[in-house]
């Protein structure tokens, strides 16, 4: 394989490394959050390793801008993988499908499903996740912001919404 193609495929190799390392860590460490971070770093290391190898063997094939582009490409692919994992972790629709599948050929009861996933249950799960993630804290029955990260995200998305989606859509 020429060095040009090796460089082009480096982000994809990084993504494969990300997936393999994340899966292995998730099974060994039994901590999905940590496995995602370790996987991401593993993929970045793999991408950087390929770039370094090409840079040492064929220096003319790689300049700083090309290296930056390839690393940025890997980061976008890793983000896509993280999104896929996050969807599996947080999506209620996916959870519902998996629960119905586990119910066998007779499925599950609709009444059970609606009772199990009431709006209050939704809220409870979200608050639990926010507290576990260090975003909110609950003291004496009152919820307070523990970290500004998600608030910054919320404000950024609101601004983007105002910029991109015309106001007449608001119902």
């Amino acid at each position: 394989m020429t060095s040009a193609w090796l460089l082009t495929l480096a982000p994809i190799a990084g993504l494969c490394a990300d997936v393999i390392v994340q899966s292995a860590c998730a099974h060994v460490l039994r901590r999905v959050g940590l496995s995602i971070v370790v996987g991401g770093l593993g993929g970045l290391a793999a991408t950087a390793g390929i770039l370094a190898r090409v840079a040492f063997t064929v220096p003319a094939a790689l300049d700083a801008a090309a290296a930056a582009m390839l690393v940025l490409t890997y980061l976008a692919l890793a983000f896509g993988y993280w999104t896929f994992l996050n969807l599996n972790i947080t999506s209620l629709r996916i959870r519902t499908l998996r629960e119905i599948l586990r119910g066998g050929e007779h499925g599950i009861s609709r009444a059970d499903l609606m009772a199990r996933y009431s709006a209050q249950e939704f809220l409870r799960r979200r608050l639990e996740r926010l507290e576990l993630g260090g975003n909110l804290s609950c003291v004496d029955g009152r919820w307070r912001l523990a970290s500004p990260k998600l608030l910054l995200l919320e404000r950024s998305l609101a601004r983007a919404r105002a910029l991109i989606i015309p106001a007449q859509r608001e119902e």
């Binding site: 939704f122 979200r126 926010l130 029955g141 919820w143 307070r144 912001l145 608030l151 998305l157």
Partner: peptide, 23 residues
């Protein structure tokens, strides 16, 4: 961007309550 996340809406409401917190 298209659909406001309920989780982020919760965070925004709690933040709006300030140091007093949200019951």
């Amino acid at each position: 961007i298209e659909n406001e996340s309920p989780t982020l809406a919760i965070v925004a409401l709690v933040a709006k309550a300030g140091p007093a917190g949200c019951a």
